[in-house]
Simulated scan of single mutants.
Amino acid sequence: MQNKKKRILIGSSGASGMPLLLCCLELIRKAENYESHLILTPSALLTLEHECGLKEKDLQKYADKIYSPEDIGASPASGSFLTEGMLVIPCSMKTLAGIQTGYTDNLLLRAADVTIKEQRRLILAVRESPLSAIHLRNMAQLALLPGVRIMPLMLTYYHCPRTLEDMTNQVAARLVEPFGIKSEEYHRWEGLKT
């Protein structure tokens, strides 16, 4: 029997931003007919524990399936594994460089490579500051590819957030929207009120 839910691959590397990962996973979990397939690097797990006090087993309530990055033969390594695309959140500069050069030495990088070759959506939620010329070059090269979207983890203020949670929800909602997930948390710019 064929899977009727739309799959979204989520890769997570060791940059800061794990609360945003959790928020994106929660938005996918709440969306009807969607499921998440999560690949976490060892650095992501370290950052997750530091920023959120969580371990890999704690993510089972957020993600539908969790893969080890060493499991290079897992389903997401093949283009025949149908997905709506992939979100890498947070995307470290090391992971960005691996994706840009096609260096597929783990499942996260292989899944991103498959996403590119199949011309599916690839959203890279990059996290670094300041950005070097190398970082910018890698992002510029990837932005030229069909379906690739570079979305730095940037806060917005036009929706007049009152809490850190408001800001986190806004960014996460923007990250999952390209996959067809609509969230009440996303406040669009509607122009200045006069």
Rank of each mutant, 00 (worst) to 15 (best):
G102K: 11
D105K: 11
V114N: 02
G102D: 03
V114D: 02
T104P: 00
V114A: 00
L87V: 15
Q100V: 07
R110I: 08
K117P: 08
Y103R: 14
M93S: 11
C91V: 13
T95K: 03
T101F: 10
R120D: 02
I123D: 00
A111F: 09
K117N: 11
E84W: 02
A111Y: 07
K117S: 04
L96M: 14
C91I: 12
I99T: 10
L108C: 09
G85K: 04
E118S: 13
C91A: 12
M86R: 06
T95Y: 05
D105Y: 11
T115E: 01
N106M: 04
D105Q: 12
A97H: 02
L124I: 15
A111Q: 04
E118L: 01
L109I: 05
K94H: 13
G102Y: 02
D113V: 10
A125R: 07
I89N: 03
K94S: 12
L109D: 01
L108F: 01
Y103W: 13
R120F: 02
L82M: 09
T95R: 02
K94M: 10
M93H: 08
G102E: 05
A112D: 02
D105A: 08
T95P: 03
G98L: 09
V88A: 00
V114C: 01
A112V: 11
V126W: 01
P90G: 03
A111R: 09
T115Y: 01
I116T: 06
G85N: 09
V88R: 04
M93I: 13
R121W: 01
T95N: 05
G85V: 14
S92N: 10
E84N: 08
L107G: 08
T83Y: 09
I116C: 03
Q119Y: 06
V88H: 05
G85D: 07
T101H: 12
I116E: 00
Q119S: 12
G102S: 07
L122Y: 05
L124H: 03
L82N: 07
G85S: 09
I123V: 15
A97Q: 06
T115M: 00
I89G: 00
D113C: 06
M86H: 06
I89P: 02
L87F: 08
D113N: 14
E118A: 13
N106A: 04
